[in-house]
Nucleic acid binder design. Sequence first.
DNA 1: CGGTATCTGTAGCACTCGCTACAAACGAGC
DNA 2: GCTCGTTTGTAGCGAGTGCTACAGATACCG
Lengths: 185, 185
Amino acid sequence: MTRRDTLADAATDYVLEHGLIGLSLRPLAAALSTSDRMLVYHFGNRDSLVAEVISRSNNRSVRVLRALPPARSVRRAVMALWKSMSDPQLDRCQKVYTQAAALGLLGQEPYRDVVQATNSEWMRALRDYLVASGADPRHADRLSRLVDATISGLHLDLSVEPASGAVRTVRDLADAAQRISDGPS
Amino acid sequence: MTRRDTLADAATDYVLEHGLIGLSLRPLAAALSTSDRMLVYHFGNRDSLVAEVISRSNNRSVRVLRALPPARSVRRAVMALWKSMSDPQLDRCQKVYTQAAALGLLGQEPYRDVVQATNSEWMRALRDYLVASGADPRHADRLSRLVDATISGLHLDLSVEPASGAVRTVRDLADAAQRISDGPS
DNA sequence: CGGTATCTGTAGCACTCGCTACAAACGAGC
DNA sequence: GCTCGTTTGTAGCGAGTGCTACAGATACCG
């Protein structure tokens, strides 16, 4: 494990706690017991560092998703996915991704490529998981898109209004997903 | 129309174009042919200005939603809603909201109250629209939560990967929503 | 040992940030 | 005309930003 790797890992931890948007080098460096000078030396510049953090955060969540044991139905898969994403660890990865994606919504988009790569990797893992849980492969793309969109949107809603009946919505989504996988093309 | 109102309106236009996240007073003031001094004078400080912009952006989108003629079914309502939200004007309002919400995901959350108020206003309008389009009022909360989460999540997805089959996902959502409104409690 | 490439610390540059002190312009009411 | 409250302009403060120049430390390789 090179020094750069160590720093990147610790920086990812820091971002998972303090968020991506206001990130600046000096406080980050202080938390890592180093200096901004070192961060710039190892990563080239701030943007490259942030891009690497986004990528690493995503790798962690993809790893968790890929380690999920397949469920016995699409419906159960969606429920299990939601439950697993409620784990604080994965939850924060999702939040970091959302912040990265939100940055590119209007105006500057310095991390477009990383976010895009990150997203397609996640979608592939989600698709595989649904298929492994019994989803009709012919509908896997539709399914994973619907599931991903709803879950990430729900995630955002939940952070704004924590009292909302999220579980009910997830159940509705799970039913819809099951129906799509079963139903006619 | 007081000077403050004029400025707030123009600032909203500016934010809808340039995004909320990197916003700083001097470039904004320059675009409005005034000075940062004036913005601080009229709004007190930067955070108040941003909060007002968020609120105004949301007001615009709620106004559009409330002006939508009721559809002949829940299914059609969801499709019409999506179509209407693809309008660049409304699209950008949604993006500004997403950026505001994403800011509060981790770390600092200076706009939590505005975002919360904004969201509940939007949800109320959405609920009313669905009910007016024939949704069972007993399921209206469930429905609007599912529809809102999916659409906003899809919106984010779409901005990252524009080629994804969003329309298909919306149709799936519309079907699911129709079923919820029709089906047993 | 000497030389070389990798790594780290100090100091600082040029810039932008939000915000403010001070004073000048302006218009309405007496 | 004169005052008084509102609005605007100029200049600048203190802090924080990303990043760099320069020099020192360290470790590996001949």
